[in-house]
Amino acid sequence: MPLLTITDLQKAYVSPEGSQTHIIDIPHFEMEEGSQIALRGTSGVGKTTFLNLIAGILGADSGRIIIADEEMTALSESGRDRLRAIHIGYIFQTFNLFAGYTALENVMLGMMFGKGIDAGFAQHLLERVGLGDRMGYRPSQLSVGQQQRVAVARAVANRPHLVLADEPTGNLDRHHANEAIALIREICAENNAGLLTVSHDEEILGQFEEATDFAQVNRA
C-alpha cells in the first residue's frame, strides 16, 4: 500500500485583481512507504504550495490526497491539523525553531500535538543528531548547522510516516548542506519515515537515487 497517493490535485490562487492563477495541477503522484523522493524545481513553481497541501496546511480546490490510508482532502481544517500532527514531520528552509525555547523543548513541542510528549525519545534524537551536549541551548546560541539539526530531530520527534523537506539546506553552506541531507535521509530511514524533499540544488538532488522534475509532476 502506498504511503502517499495524490490524484487530480488542483490549487489556484486568486490575485488581488481577482484573476485566478493555477499553481498546482497534479493528475497523479505516489510514494511508497519508507521511500525517499527528491523533486527538482526552481522557486515560484508551487513546490511549497505542494508540500503545504500534503501537510494539510492548505486546503485543496479539488482532488484527493491520501496519507497512510487517511484522506487528507476529505477532512475539515481541524481534521487536517490532527492528521498532520500524527503523520507528518516538516523541515523548513528557515528551520522555524521557537526562539524562546531550548533545543530539547523545541523537539518536545514537535511531539505535543500528536502522540504525546516523550522526553526520553526527544533526548535520544538530539543525541542522534550530535547535539547531546547542546540540549539546553536556545537557537540563538547554536550555529546555523546545529539549528538545522534541531529542526531535523523535531521533524521525526512524533514518529511520522512522512517527512516533508522544503529546501532543507537552503540556508547552509555546501559542506553543511551535504552533511545535513545525509543526516535527514539516515534519520528518516531509521525511523521508518518516507522523505519527500523539494530543492533546486543539483548537488543535493544528486544524493538521492532518483530526482524528478517537479514540472513533470505538476502540469500547472
Partner: peptide
C-alpha cells in the same frame, strides 16, 4: 504570527 504558524505546522489547531 510566525510562532503561531509554526505551532500550526506542528499540528496545533486554530482553537489551540
Amino acid at each position: 504570527r510566525r510562532e503561531f504558524a509554526i505551532l500550526r505546522s506542528l499540528g496545533a489547531r486554530r482553537k489551540t
